[in-house]
Amino acid sequence: MEFSYEVKDSYAEVKADGRLNMVSAPKLREFVTDVIAGGSNRIVVNLENTAFMDSSGLGALIGCLKAARQAGGDLRIAAVQPQVNMVLKLTSMDKVLTAYTTAEEAFGND
């Protein structure tokens, strides 16, 4: 899995491309923690190229959400693909991690 980020006007966009599984989940957590430590507490995780996520990956997203909130911000997800959407729904975590169609929309009204 490859991670990248870009600081936009009102948020930082993190891209996680590949499979978000038990191997990459701790790396996502570390990556987002570093982005927050760098001064961005409003995070959008763009999942456009995240073809797969398991419960470890979901746990990492929840950990990142908590870290962003502890820093006084929030974390939102965007461009969710079908498999990730299925995992979010089956675990009822779609109510906690709100999915937006695009990264731009995630903090669009804030």
């Binding site: 398991d54 419960s55 470890s56 979901l58 746990g59 990492a60 929840i62 950990g63 908590k66 995992v87 089956l90 675990t91 009822s92 975590m93 109510k95 906690v96």
Partner: peptide
């Protein structure tokens, strides 16, 4: 709990 970071695997397998 909804903010737990682990413990969902078995329920997920059973749902799948």
């Amino acid at each position: 709990d909804e903010d737990a970071e682990s413990g969902r695997g078995l329920a997920l397998i059973e749902a799948l």
